[in-house]
Simulated assay, not measured.
Amino acid sequence: MSGYAQLKERRREDYTYILDYRTRWSDNDMYDHMNNSIYNFLYDSVINTYLMENCGLDPPNGSQYGMVVHSHNDYFSSISFPACTELALRVNKIGNSSVTYEIALFEKGIERVKSVGEFIQVFVDRKTGRPNAAGMQTSLREGLERILVKAPTSKL
């Protein structure tokens, strides 16, 4: 099964952290569905909510912050106001200073996923804007590891 086909089959149970979001009238565009720019806004919001609630991120005062260096989204079906959404988050990979997130958007009461996106963040030093040689802070790493998807082990 291709990567796109696998993403289209995502279910809520594939994710560890879920955040509810009520769409707003202003989220719709002239085609009467949520504008694609809103998806990135929501993905950024669920990631930062998780980081603040579970990883000790303190955006205005912390010594590190996550800079998005890559993002993309696959759309499977539309959603529009006044729908309620569930933003589902997991971590697919953690590097020394980087993290790869996968975010899915579901509509409450609807089983099929509406979209799946990917964000890659690099945690940088606030003073220099560059990755810290020691990597991301321990509290960040430990929090992100809690929602890291482990690759299945083969039984040979």
Rank of each mutant, 00 (worst) to 15 (best):
M1R: 04
M1A: 07
S2A: 06
G3E: 13
Q6A: 06
L7R: 15
E9R: 07
R11C: 03
R12N: 01
E13D: 06
E13A: 04
E13T: 08
Y15N: 04
Y15Q: 05
Y15T: 06
L19E: 11
D20L: 10
R24M: 13
W25L: 12
M30C: 11
M30V: 13
Y31N: 09
N35A: 11
N35C: 09
Y39A: 12
F41K: 12
D44C: 06
S45K: 15
I47C: 14
N48H: 14
T49H: 15
Y50N: 08
L51Q: 04
M52N: 05
M52K: 10
S63M: 06
Q64K: 05
M67C: 03
V69F: 07
N73W: 01
I79W: 08
T85N: 09
R90W: 03
N92I: 01
K93R: 14
N96R: 15
S97K: 06
S98F: 06
S98R: 08
S98T: 11
Y101P: 00
Y101K: 05
Y101R: 03
F106C: 04
S115G: 05
S115T: 07
V116M: 07
E118Q: 15
E118P: 00
Q121F: 02
V124M: 11
D125E: 14
R126C: 10
R126S: 11
R126I: 03
K127H: 12
K127N: 14
G129M: 09
N132F: 02
G135H: 10
M136R: 06
L140K: 00
R141G: 08
L144T: 00
L144Y: 02
E145T: 11
E145K: 09
E145Q: 11
R146W: 03
V149I: 04
V149P: 01
A151G: 00
A151D: 04
A151L: 05
P152R: 02
P152F: 00
P152E: 01
S154V: 01
S154D: 00
S154W: 00
K155P: 00
